[in-house]
């Protein structure tokens, strides 16, 4: 790199700088500028249009005393924790199963990963149909003679998050499986040989040797899945529209509704700033672990 740079004259490098203009504009204007703008205007009382009348933390006080927002946050935490635990556990178990030199590996992978190619709208609508109490799983089990069987998560405020979870896991676990499988395949064969020579049983090798070695893969997966969960929106819109009542509301929905439906921009900005804060809480420790100690090429 250094020699190449020495060869370049200032005016020749101009072309590269011109080519980088879209990137520079995107990072500075949209990512940095846009984020700063939203954070700044979350301290105003903007309604239909943004205006510079600063009101301190009023919007945040209103936000945290709004029951719909509190439900959204609670839902996101419950859904988030369950979704993280289940995607990672299922993804890892499936990857281990796939790593046993099995037959039809490609077929299994194709089956597990195709939901990931589908949109959350499609995912939400299909599961809405399967979980439909009149025609779906509940009615079929009842038809088999178990008359009192109830499985109607989408219309039960206590269970609706699990209805979303079934759909969310269906869409995303195959992807996590692929990441984990890539991680498992990246582990040196010699480690396995050494463990076998020492007579360590396979399951113990996985838990005591392979799991710790896969730490970077787990962390990366965790960050990617967590960032996706915080953005959770389309799936809820399609599957439950936030209902029954407000039982399956999520923060992204609150933001959208206040910004574009209720014409209360300030609330929307405050809510989205809180979303950003949540991401930073996930992201900063990760960035510290990932880039903190060692220098990156």
């Amino acid at each position: 790199m250094a020699e190449a740079r020495r060869v370049n004259r200032m005016w020749r490098n101009m072309n590269a700088k011109i080519a980088a203009v879209p990137m520079i504009l995107t990072t500075l204007v949209v990512f940095v500028g846009g984020t700063a703008w939203t954070v700044l205007y979350s301290f105003t009382d903007s309604k239909l249009l943004p205006r510079e009348r600063f009101v301190g933390f009023d919007q945040y006080e209103r936000l945290w005393s709004n029951s719909r927002w509190l439900t959204s946050i609670e839902n996101l935490m419950i859904y988030g924790v369950l979704s993280l635990v289940f995607t990672i556990v299922i993804g890892f178990l499936l990857a281990v199963a796939m790593d046993q030199k099995i037959r039809f590996e490609d077929t299994f992978r194709t089956i597990m990963l195709y939901p990931f190619a589908l949109s959350f709208i499609v995912t939400g609508l299909v599961w809405q149909w399967i979980l439909n109490p009149e025609f779906g799983i509940q009615s079929i089990v009842r038809g088999l003679g178990w008359e009192s069987f109830t499985f109607n998560p989408l219309n039960n405020p206590d269970l609706v998050l699990y209805g979303l979870l079934i759909a969310g896991l269906w869409q995303g676990t195959g992807f996590v499986m692929c990441l984990m499988l890539a991680g498992l395949r990246g582990i040196d064969e010699d480690i396995w040989k050494a463990a076998r020579v020492d007579g360590i049983p396979t399951w113990k090798t996985y838990i005591q040797i392979i799991l710790p070695m896969m730490r970077p893969v787990f962390i990366t997966t965790l960050v990617i899945v967590a960032a996706g969960i915080i953005k959770l929106y389309d799936l809820v819109v399609a599957q439950t529209s936030g209902g029954p009542g407000n039982a399956s509301q999520v923060p992204a929905m609150y933001v959208y509704d206040y910004m574009f439906q209720a014409q209360n921009l300030g609330q929307g900005f405050a809510a989205s700033t809180m979303m950003l804060l949540t991401v930073l809480i996930v992201l900063i420790p990760w960035a510290y672990l990932e880039f903190g100690g060692k220098k990156h090429g």
Partner: peptide, 20 residues
């Protein structure tokens, strides 16, 4: 710029919706 770009991938879209 590259680092900002990568971090930008994690910023929730909701934060940038209105400025855009």
């Amino acid at each position: 710029f590259f680092t900002i770009l990568i971090f930008g991938a994690f910023i929730p879209y909701q934060v940038m919706l209105y400025p855009i």
